[in-house]
Design a binder for these strands. Structure first.
Lengths: 219, 219, 219, 219
DNA sequence: CATGAATGAGGGTTCATTCAT
DNA sequence: CATGAATGAACCCTCATTCAT
């Protein structure tokens, strides 16, 4: 409980949340993640939160506002590490090698995912269904993150650590591999047994060197 | 129209579909893909299909039955290429190199995705929300496909074309890369300009050799 | 089956019933008796009868027509014994004593009830709910039967076998006792163990002499 | 109106009923009694009650719950006079003669019926159609009432006021006569002219001494 | 602030009935 | 004759939202 509260407060920073509001948010997250926004009724959320139906609407004018209140901060937190003002500087000094940068990013985003599993699930599931969300996502996340990441890629290409292919391809493949791993790990097969350290390492190595074995050459 | 019909008939093979049934399915696919199953009303589907609402329920006992009627065949078609009885034999003879196999698979599944874009979207979106679908997916797709794929991987590992890491990691990373590409290309950023041949080739090369440039070595 | 058919044919005399019509009637009777007219759907009847939905409406223009087709003949059969043209004559000669007449009537109507249990149930249940039925009942049954019965009562009062109270009271109390017995026996508690002969006899004796024991006098 | 309210409140004792709830109950009783439960729509009840349809379902989860809310208290009230704890004692002292007991019961139950005419109609009509109601009725009414009544009968048999036939026959015939009268009077032919006191008295006399006139003897 | 009764539009589904085959 | 696909009104019920308390 206090554990949950902490996370909620942390996510919703800036806002002062009453006790009831917190319970509403927590219940909504749970239900939205499990059954989807559309299949979750406000009365259900109210009941689960131990709150009157009207109370929800005192804090969030509409049901969709409640969704946004949940989803928007996750987007913000998700972008944050990529747009810290002096990211470039920091990066170059901290991570001499692309490999190290990848490793750091994977771990950093993994921590985030673990902390915000349900909320990210909602994000992923609802974005394609709500044009407003899609827009929000494109503007605030996709573009900003992509811009930063492109610069990073170009930096590592400039010093020969990454092959010379279009930056957007590099970005796509890197993201695909890292988030493909995280999604498989935490969302598709969370109940399987995972050797997290080994898989993370393998994923990084895969991004760097692929799967080719000694006899892979075609000629 | 006749174009659409063809695709529907092809997908729902085995079943004899009346004209009205086809219209219902087509309308349902469109709406489910756009707004999600839960947010789509049967009356809306009926209107779009130019059919009385009762007609839907003559053919599909419940709304969920309609969803299953749409989603089940896609699953079947999706698995099909992986479980052709003599897949192994064929593969070994046709694709001397893993690279060629990957390329073939990517193209094959890409064609499938292009043809069934909306339906696959529905599949991807609804699976996490419906336990029955999740079960169906696990049994019929995940397991069967994985089994086959694992054998293929082991075959190419045996002759040294793939590095010796756990087969499931190879499978995960391969799938992640290929479907990551397809999802980005056709579902997330379909409106961007894509040089499909080049991206496909890059993706294959990435899977084989990763991103490492000449100076990537850390020591 | 052939047993059932016989009874149906017998009840619906005059009409030529096709095989399907008979099945429809039988199914309708079963369902109407069990769940009531209103709660029984035509599709349910069709299914139970092994007949297409449309077939019902070929024979009976509306659902209510089907009800009437079932209920009207029972009314007719029910009245029949009371309005045989020469009832009076017959009676006077056959039954010197009122007691014997009662006994005959009880047995006669009991046989009828046993044969038409479900249909009578429907009759009893639906009459209060359908003004047309109520009208039918009043005109064809209540009045005609009452008239005859009144004459009979007056006859037995004239020769001192029945006390001199208003005929309608005699009719009411007689009917109440006889049908009260039959309803209890066959409709309310059919599963209890009944000594039919003894109960019938007791009922007749009750009508004749009441319950008073030797010390019943109040003064 | 205030008259109606009184009766409703009295019937639904224990429950606090809002104004709207009362209107719903009153409307439902009216419609159920007239057309039967199954043929009455919730929208019709709502309209008649001057209430939104949703309001009905806020107070009664289902339509059947509404039926039960109406019917259950009538059952309870109906049994009540029979199961007053010290019924036996009271009876024996108050009613030296069975005849007086009968007379008291008839009047008592008549008052009840007059007050709850519509509701009893519903009860009588719906019990055969709903297994739950049938069960409720058997457990709470039939059994409890029968037990008490049997004891009373045995008491009057012991002192010779009632002839020595099986108690259940006495019970059946007494009930049949009394309720046969009440049903005829208030449910079948309410619009006829009745001399209530005379009919009541005749009914009691009938139960006590039957219909036999001076020349009724068969030998 | 919090409540929960009230709303009425709309949800999925069933209905009696029609009609082309 | 018999069929069963098609209909659209009506069914019971749930919904997001409002507002007097």
């Amino acid at each position: 409980m206090s554990d949950h509260d902490l996370k909620i407060d942390e996510l919703m920073d800036g806002e002062e949340l009453t006790e009831k509001q917190k319970k509403i948010i927590i219940s909504a997250i749970e239900s939205f993640a499990e059954k989807g926004y559309s299949a979750t009724s406000t009365s259900e959320i109210a009941k689960k939160a131990g709150v009157a139906e009207g109370t929800i609407f005192r804090h969030y004018k509409t049901k969709k506002d409640l969704l946004l209140a949940i989803v928007a901060p996750v987007m913000a937190k998700f972008v944050a590490p990529f747009i810290i003002k002096d990211l470039n500087k920091v990066l170059h000094q901290d991570y001499e090698h692309f490999e190290d940068f990848l490793s750091a990013m994977l771990k950093n985003r993994r921590d985030f995912l673990v902390k915000n599993l349900a909320t990210v699930k909602i994000l992923v599931q609802e974005i394609p269904l709500h044009p407003e969300l899609k827009e929000l996502f494109k503007e605030h996340i996709a573009l900003k993150v992509y811009e930063r990441f492109e610069k990073i890629v170009e930096h590592y290409q400039a010093n020969g650590q990454i092959i010379e292919i279009p930056a957007y391809s590099v970005v796509r493949m890197t993201f695909t591999s890292i988030f493909g791993y995280l999604i498989a790990r935490y969302m598709l097969l969370p109940e399987a047994e995972w050797d997290d350290e080994a898989e993370a390492e393998r994923t990084i190595q895969f991004i760097m060197h692929g799967l080719a074995g000694p006899n892979s050459s075609k000629n």
